[in-house]
């Protein structure tokens, strides 16, 4: 049978590294092919933020005020970007549970591919997907009049922070995906994602919320990212003088790092537990 000779069993570090990267790339391509083959998924994913933009921007917009002044639409857009990133972990969780439930993960694990590639490929693929989301949302925002008055570098930094949040949430997505039993259960993760995205400074200033809710919103990592990106975009910020609000830029880096440090090892451990 015309099949290539088996690869030598004792391969060097260089070969291993090569295949770790090559295998990750194969998984990235798989994720991108999913995007191409299911365009309606992108529509669903961006449907919510876009409808929110239209609803809050036009319908409720006139009734919403930004503490400290400023245009509500300008205030809202970075919130939508942040919320989309926050919801993103559901995509990760969904594909992880899908692969697990359908036996695809087992097939990968029974193959000679680099074990790390499943996770790194997933991570890179998700970041590319999230960047696409941001491009589409950004263009929508531009179309309805939103502008970044920050410099090019600041604007890029703002998008970078948004992606950093999404990156950190990949690991939460992987952990949740390995925890829930099946795809239907993954759907109910929306009950987690929704408050996570909404109880934040995305739509309104935490100072306008009841005290206890406001406190949660203040310390929600989404808020730090959203506030930091507002600062960098030069959009209305509407922050109070609490420490967490004053250090949004710092916390927009610290939160994702902390989340990654906690959940990346957890994700790896959960993955290894599959062989119990």
């Amino acid at each position: 049978m015309s099949v290539d000779a088996k690869i030598a069993d004792d391969e060097g570090v260089g070969t291993r590294l090569y295949w770790a990267v090559a295998d990750s790339w194969t998984i990235v391509l798989r994720g991108l092919t999913h995007y191409v083959r299911q365009p309606s998924n992108i529509a669903w994913q961006l449907g919510f933020p876009i409808v929110s933009v239209l609803l809050f921007g036009y319908v409720f917009g006139s009734a919403m005020s930004v503490p400290g002044g400023g245009d509500y639409q300008e205030f809202l857009m970075p919130g939508m970007f942040g919320m989309t990133m926050a919801f993103g972990f559901m995509n990760t969780a969904y594909i992880v549970v899908y692969d697990k439930a359908r036996g695809v993960t087992d097939r990968f694990r029974s193959m000679p591919m680099a074990p790390s590639a499943v996770v790194t490929g997933r991570g890179v693929g998700d970041l590319i997907g999230a960047s696409l989301d941001l491009v589409v949302l950004g263009l929508t925002a531009l179309a309805i009049g939103w502008r970044s008055s920050g410099g090019v570098l600041d604007t890029l930094a703002a998008f970078g922070l948004l992606l950093l949040l999404r990156f950190a949430l990949i690991w939460i997505g992987v952990v949740l995906g390995l925890l829930v039993p099946n795809e239907e259960a993954a759907g109910s993760l929306f009950a987690v994602a929704f408050p996570f995205g909404m109880i934040s400074s995305a739509f309104t200033a935490p100072s306008l919320m009841p005290d206890w809710l406001g406190a949660i919103a203040l310390w929600n990592p989404v808020s730090s990212t959203v506030t930091a990106s507002r600062e960098l975009f030069g959009n209305p910020v509407a922050t109070g003088d609490t420490w967490i609000e004053q250090h949004a830029l710092l916390m927009a880096v610290v939160w994702p790092v902390v989340i990654t440090l906690i959940f990346l090892p957890l994700a790896v451990r959960r993955f290894q537990r599959l062989s119990r």
């Binding site: 088996k6 690869i7 069993d9 798989r30 359908r102 036996g103 695809v104 087992d106 097939r107 029974s110």
Partner: peptide, 19 residues
Amino acid sequence: QVRRRIGLAGQHAAVDEIL
């Protein structure tokens, strides 16, 4: 090394249904 020499078709058809 074992993984280089085996094939597995599990109890459920483990293919990517989107592709």
